[in-house]
């Protein structure tokens, strides 16, 4: 392996190392944004907060993979869609209840008015 290729991989590793350290520092700063304890403000603080949130998601994803529950997450997404459908159907049932109430009202008023004359 020539020295050029070695230098290329060394540069590549260095880039990753610097990026990784930068990201870890951002996650650390973002995680420190607790009540009354913000170290900084402005656009950088927002990026740190976002980095911390992404890191949390990464940990959650690792845990899901370890537990083999990624498929369950998909099932949760399906459940949301089915819940929406269930709600729409339930709302229709509510409307039918309302209509039934109206029919009972009409019937009660007709009965109170006495038999219709032919």
């Amino acid at each position: 392996m020539s020295d050029d290729v070695m230098r290329f991989f060394a540069a590549w590793m260095l880039t990753h190392e610097v990026a990784d350290e930068g990201l870890k520092a951002a996650v650390l700063r973002g995680s420190g944004q607790v009540q009354g304890g913000m170290a900084a403000d402005g656009p950088d603080a927002f990026v740190d907060g976002l980095a911390a949130m992404v890191a949390q998601r990464k940990e959650a994803l690792k845990a899901e993979l370890a537990a083999g529950s990624v498929a369950a997450a998909t099932a949760d997404e399906q459940k949301v869609v089915f819940d929406e459908l269930r709600f729409e159907v339930a709302e229709m049932r509510g409307r039918i209840d309302e209509v039934q109430g109206t029919l009972e009202t009409i019937l009660a008023k007709l009965e109170a008015a006495g038999p219709a004359r032919g």
């Binding site: 509510g94 409307r95 209840d97 309302e98 039934q100 109430g101 109206t102 009972e104």
Partner: peptide
């Protein structure tokens, strides 16, 4: 929770 039968 709403009681639709007696809601107008």
């Amino acid at each position: 929770r709403v009681v639709w039968r007696t809601t107008t």
